Every structure is written in structure tokens, then in C-alpha cells.
Amino acid sequence: MYKVKVFVTLRESVIDPQGTVAKDSLHKLNYGEVSDVRIGKYIELTLEKTDRNIDEIVKEMCEKLLVNLNVEDYRFEIEEVVAQ
């Protein structure tokens, strides 16, 4: 079994209104040292063992469904889980 962590962020060239609101709110709470906030999403997948290449499977899932490639970037980490 595999545990996959997918991290999705807006591309640097894309304006992040949610991040701007969070940064402004942090400044109002006296966290003036915060210079930028970018909001993303975290996706956790559990995959059964397969003969197919796990990296390729996850890349396909991200690019076909989980990530909007027009405005988002992504990276993922795969961890093999040993049943106990």
C-alpha cells in the first residue's frame, strides 16, 4: 500500500486573492513580519499495490483531475506503507 501526499499551489504568476486577504488579516493581528501568503491545497491518497508505476499513476491523476494545470503547480511524495 502507498500513502501519497500531493501539494498544490497557485503558480507564482497567478494572483492569490485568498492569500492577500490572509496576509492583510495577519498584519491587522500585529504579524507585520509576514511579507507574503500563498494559499494552496493538500491532498492525501491511499493506493493499493500495483504492477503499474506509482509515480506515473499519481502524475496522471493530478494532471487529469486534481490540479488545474493552467494556474496551479504541484508536487507529490510517495511513501510505501507496510501493513502491521
Rank of each mutant, 00 (worst) to 15 (best):
V6H: 06
K3T: 13
I43R: 07
E77C: 04
T50E: 04
N30P: 05
H27D: 11
L69A: 07
G40I: 07
A22W: 03
N53W: 05
K3R: 14
V81H: 03
E12N: 10
D73K: 04
I43E: 00
Q18T: 03
T20R: 14
T50V: 09
L45E: 01
K64M: 08
L26Y: 09
K23N: 11
F7D: 09
Q18P: 04
E56L: 07
F76P: 05
V37L: 03
T20S: 14
F76V: 04
R38A: 04
E63N: 02
K64P: 04
Q84H: 15
T50S: 10
A83I: 15
V82G: 10
L65H: 01
Y42Q: 07
I15C: 03
L29H: 07
T50D: 04
D73M: 02
L10F: 00
V4G: 09
T50C: 01
K23W: 07
L66T: 02
Q18R: 07
K59N: 12
R11N: 02
V4Y: 11
L47H: 05
V21W: 08
I15L: 15
V71Y: 01
D36I: 11
V8M: 01
V37K: 05
L45S: 03
A83R: 15
D73P: 02
I78D: 05
H27L: 11
T20P: 07
K5V: 06
G32E: 14
N68T: 04
E12S: 09
I43D: 02
L69Y: 03
E44C: 05
E33V: 09
T9A: 13
S13M: 07
